[in-house]
């Protein structure tokens, strides 16, 4: 197992109370796998990825876990300098907004060669050669000239390509992509996803793709984790999970995706109610106030993540109710 996270919690103390952004997450990623994490905004996806990268400052955040094993090393027990050697080297990350994620004061070449200089001990001319290769490999035209460009001279798609190139510069074992396509046009989205797919196939890099876009997740990932209010509510292989969701939230999420064959002028399907206040989670299942299948137990106990019975593949859900084949409210 490349990454094995058990019971990870990230809490932020604030004036209005403890924000439980990540509230006990288990996550496993095999070498070369593509894992998707989906959920509404505010469900803790980004905090989860930042915590794994060690980018959540603690204090103030309170981070705890049974283990965060990466390549046989517990990231939570690593010192700051050990963590720095892993970050950008074995464990890399791509961020949502390529417009702001690159330093506007430094050239692209300068920023791309940084990880090579600090992790691979290359000389600056070696690094430059490698960066130009990288730029070419992510499909940036005229990489020699572009080496000296500034980020503002790049288009959005090109910046995200540069970000990808920067992340994979050192050949990481795991790449965390936090909404890498959200800020981009649909056509560019596809190109970036294709680029990441080819990197995954060629380099054997495992990818965690964080997104709220079910379509993107379905097209890219082998396995999906569905997050709600800081917890995993369902996990399973992509095809089975989409074909037959076993958690009411997954089901609601899937049915709220607008479809091309919807009749025009119809109402959008939404999930009633508001995402929960993370400082003041309901007793029991966090989804229970919005859930159409709710039973009394849901409001008293937190459902544990259990194996879904009657499946040929490994699937887990955190729900007391069997919803397959049922309609809401029955």
């Amino acid at each position: 197992m490349l990454l094995d996270v058990k019971n990870l919690k990230t809490h932020f103390p604030t004036q209005t109370g403890l924000v439980r952004a990540v509230n006990g997450i288990d996550l496993q990623v095999r070498e070369g796998a593509a894992v998707g994490i989906v959920g509404e905004s505010g469900s803790g996806k980004s905090v989860l990825s930042m915590t794994m990268m060690g980018l959540v400052p603690s204090p103030p955040a309170i981070i705890s876990a049974d283990q965060v094993q990466f390549e046989g090393k517990d990231l939570l027990k690593a010192t700051a300098s050990e963590m720095r050697q892993i970050r950008g080297n074995r464990l890399a990350m791509i961020f949502q907004d390529p417009m702001t994620s690159l330093n506007p004061f430094l050239t692209i070449g300068d920023q791309l060669s940084e990880p090579l200089l600090i992790h691979k001990n290359l000389t600056s001319s070696q690094a430059k050669k490698r960066v130009i290769e990288l730029l070419a490999s992510v499909g940036i035209p005229d990489p020699v000239a572009r080496y000296r460009s500034y980020p503002h001279e790049f288009s959005g798609g090109m910046r995200q390509r540069a970000m990808v190139a920067m992340a994979v510069a050192c050949g990481p074992a795991l790449l965390i992509a936090d909404e890498p396509t959200t800020a981009l046009d649909v056509t560019i989205q596809a190109q970036i996803l294709e680029l990441m797919q080819s990197i995954r196939q060629n380099e054997g890099t495992a990818v965690i793709l964080i997104t709220h876009d079910m379509g993107v997740a379905a097209g890219f990932c082998d396995e999906i984790y569905v997050m709600y209010a800081g917890r995993v509510v369902e996990r399973g292989p992509t095809e089975r999970l989409f074909a037959e969701p076993t958690h009411p939230y997954t089901k609601a999420l899937l049915s709220s995706v607008p479809r091309l064959d919807d009749p025009p002028g119809g109402r959008f399907r939404t999930i009633p109610g508001q995402p929960p206040d993370l400082t003041n989670l309901p007793v029991g299942c966090a989804f229970s106030p919005r859930c159409p299948y709710v039973i009394d137990t849901c409001r008293k106990e937190v459902p544990p993540l259990t194996t879904v019975p009657g499946e040929s593949v490994a699937r887990e859900k955190a729900c007391f109710v069997e919803i397959r084949g049922k309609e809401a409210g029955q």
Binding site: L55, G88, N89, F95, T100, F105, L106, E114, I118, H119
Partner: peptide, 24 residues
């Protein structure tokens, strides 16, 4: 955001302050 990127690259606090932040 680009400071977060720099952290993600594995740069030390000092390198980040001097190279990435001071100029801006």
């Amino acid at each position: 955001d680009f400071i977060r990127t720099a952290h993600a690259k594995g740069l030390s606090e000092r390198q980040i302050v001097i190279k990435h932040a001071l100029r801006g």
